[in-house]
Simulated scan of single mutants.
Amino acid sequence: MMELLLARLRAAGFEAESVRPAPGGVVAAAGMARLRDGSQVFAKTLRTAAPDLFEIEAAGLRALRELGGVTTPEVLAVTPDLLVLEPLPPRREEDELFWEELALAVAGLHGGVVGERFGWHRDGWLGRLRQDNTWDGDGHAWFAQRRILRWLPEPLVEEVLDREERLALERLCAALPDLLPPAPPVLTHGDLWRENVLSGSAGGPALIDPAVSYSWAEADLSMLWCSPRPPAAGRFFEVYAATAPLPDGWQERMRIYHLRELLSSIAHDDNTRECAEEVREIIAPF
């Protein structure tokens, strides 16, 4: 795939001499390309056809930067099969100040861009599967239909969750108005976990790989709360809440919001057994 990425960079006008593979990447093959003048760019190409994936990713990066004031990599080129970005250094994983700066940036994003409806003007992607962003004025109905129940027809989810478990998810969704407090739709990154955090050129935090929509702030936070994070990030939520106060009980709500990510992981065949067990724990009362 690096040979294909190199060829597509050259076809797009980049004088690329070599490409070093980047770790991870479920959907795209990615790497750091060295150009003839000695500079570098970060580039991705598709493993499978998804003609608008890179266009949507680039638009999401621009929205976070231009509307939300968040640092994101500059988009250098985008085509149906190629995305070229400004290269960014790794996140300062063990630097407490870095994670506090991230908390302030995310609080600013959520507090600074408030919408009138939940959704986005176009559907997006979460991994290699579509993210349904159809507009809705009712946050509970939108989250139930577009972020939880949307995953039930996926073949791997149908295979893993039995009929009673699927009914329990539906009952949980019906109870969302009693489980989650009403909150306004705010601009969210949509896939906010540690691997989508890097450092910007000035050293502060930068965000990559968004799945943007107007959603609940707490739904965005659930990704960081429920996925592994380094000890240095221990004050992230305290610093966030000092800027954008969180309603009481927010810690207990995080796992409900995280159902979207768990179901998506099952649908992508990613850590399926553990994710399924966690889903079963969350839906057990229902």
Rank of each mutant, 00 (worst) to 15 (best):
G115I: 07
V106S: 00
R255A: 15
A241N: 01
R273A: 15
L262P: 02
C275G: 05
L102H: 06
A168G: 04
A63I: 07
E74G: 11
A22T: 09
R62L: 11
P21E: 09
I282K: 02
M254E: 13
L5M: 11
T79D: 08
F237K: 10
W99V: 11
W250V: 03
L152H: 03
N196S: 10
T79V: 13
L176E: 03
L169T: 10
A107W: 02
R163H: 14
D132L: 12
L161F: 05
D162G: 13
F237M: 13
V78N: 02
A49G: 13
G25C: 14
A107Y: 02
F14K: 00
M2S: 09
E154V: 07
D132S: 10
L76P: 02
G137H: 12
G204I: 06
E238T: 15
E55N: 05
A50P: 01
E164M: 06
V114N: 02
A49R: 15
D248V: 04
D123F: 03
E57R: 01
E164R: 07
V78D: 02
E55I: 00
E159F: 04
R10D: 03
R166L: 10
L61T: 00
P285Q: 03
L5H: 08
R255I: 10
P89S: 08
L224C: 09
L5Q: 04
C173K: 01
G200Y: 05
L262W: 08
L104C: 04
H268L: 14
A168E: 04
E170S: 13
S264Q: 08
P285T: 06
T71H: 08
E116V: 10
V26P: 04
D270Y: 15
A58R: 00
A168K: 12
F118E: 01
H140K: 10
L46Q: 12
E170F: 04
S39T: 14
C275Y: 14
D270H: 14
Y214F: 15
R255K: 13
A77P: 08
E274F: 11
R146C: 14
A16E: 05
D270V: 15
L263R: 05
P80V: 11
E3S: 12
V197P: 02
F143E: 02
G127W: 06
A77Q: 13
F14D: 02
E261F: 14
V106D: 00
L53Q: 09
G204F: 04
N133H: 09
A107H: 00
L61N: 01
T72A: 04
R273T: 10
G13T: 05
Q145R: 15
I256F: 12
D81K: 04
F14Y: 07
I283N: 00
G139P: 00
E101D: 14
E15M: 08
E101V: 06
P228S: 13
T79M: 10
A242W: 09
G108E: 08
P185A: 12
P89H: 09
A12K: 05
L104M: 08
A11T: 10
A202H: 13
L9E: 03
P245C: 06
M254R: 09
S201A: 12
P155C: 11
E261C: 09
W250L: 12
A22N: 08
L67W: 07
R147H: 08
W120S: 01
A233G: 13
R194Y: 07
A30W: 00
T79N: 11
V70N: 00
R8K: 15
V160T: 15
E96W: 02
A217E: 10
A232I: 13
G127Y: 09
R65W: 10
V114Y: 01
R229E: 07
V160Q: 15
A50F: 07
V157Q: 03
